[in-house]
């Protein structure tokens, strides 16, 4: 431990200023300072876990996977929304960090934001494939054809983990409670841009009101903070282009067809002898 501290020069202590708020007890949030040992390679989440285990077990925050997959631990770290698990302290370069819950959401307790508004907005833009051939959608016979190019035209936007960092960074979301926000609008484009979908018109009417795609003024803060490189700002501009194109008489695309049934089949690999087959079991 002390060796690691020496490797870091003189730094062996980390100070976390954490915003606390307990709705049962406190009238307003306040800042509390914790000092803990610094260890090389430590993330902000490691620091918070250390506090909960060793200093104050009442500190509330959300975290699950510790590897930037679940999107639960987004918080405002030194005035920038980021994933606590994805932010090594050394990357920030300061050893006194200010940690607050994500803005533009309500606070449940301490660092836990209430992201339900984001999920409601996400659902409102119909983030799923919609096609005319309902029968094929419900009883699929084969996969839909999609070229690698077609996949890449929306793939980037499909990496969203719904952590809410973009909504916390967005200046329009700072006042517009109705504003759908970068997360929902990006997902709207993710499906509008999918070659297997042909009902983007329904999604476009969901994002057309003033609190939809028009609330974006391309400040680009969402793309800067996205921990997964989703680039919501780009998606929203492409969505806006689609909305304009549709209003000027653009037609819905023909969705990609169902893959043709395979012609001929390869010779089956023989089942190894040690495998238990259906016949053995009965």
């Amino acid at each position: 431990m002390s060796n690691n501290g020496e490797n870091q020069g003189s730094v062996s202590k980390l100070t976390l200023k954490v915003q606390r708020y307990n709705p049962d007890r406190d009238k307003a949030p306040y800042m509390q300072e914790f000092t803990l040992p610094f260890r090389k390679g430590m993330t902000v989440l490691d620091g918070l876990l250390y506090i909960r285990e060793n200093i104050d077990s009442s500190l509330a925050f959300r975290a699950s996977c510790r590897m930037g997959i679940c999107g639960a631990c987004a918080m405002l770290i030194n005035n920038l929304p980021r994933l606590a698990c994805h932010t090594p302290v050394e990357e920030i370069g300061e050893f006194t960090l200010e940690i607050k819950p994500l803005p533009n959401f309500a606070i449940v307790k301490d660092l836990v934001p209430d992201t339900s508004s984001m999920f409601e907005k996400h659902a409102s833009v119909k983030p799923y494939l919609m096609r005319d051939d309902q029968e094929e959608m419900e009883h699929p016979t084969a996969e839909f054809v999609q070229s690698p190019d077609e996949l890449e035209s929306y793939l980037q936007f499909a990496y969203c983990i719904k952590c809410g960092a973009c909504v916390a960074a967005c200046p329009t979301s700072a006042t517009g409670k109705l504003y759908l926000g970068p997360q929902a609008l990006t997902q709207a484009y993710r499906y509008c841009g999918d070659s297997r979908d042909n009902k983007s018109g329904e999604r476009i009417s969901a994002v057309d009101p003033y609190y939809g795609v028009w609330g974006c003024h391309f400040a680009g803060a969402c793309s800067q903070v996205c921990p997964k490189g989703v680039d919501p700002a780009l998606a929203i501009q492409l969505l806006r282009r689609k909305v304009f194109a549709q209003s000027l008489g653009g037609k819905e695309r023909t969705p990609s067809p169902v893959a043709a049934p395979p012609t001929g089949s390869k010779e089956k690999i023989p089942v190894p002898e040690f495998t238990v087959t259906q016949d053995d079991r009965s």
């Binding site: 708020y21 709705p23 005035n79 803005p103 533009n104 959401f105 309500a106 606070i107 960074a169 409670k177």
Partner: peptide, 15 residues
Amino acid sequence: YLENYLGIKGWVWGG
């Protein structure tokens, strides 16, 4: 829950 919108301040001051 306690509302935590940045408000108009969020337009000007961005962090």
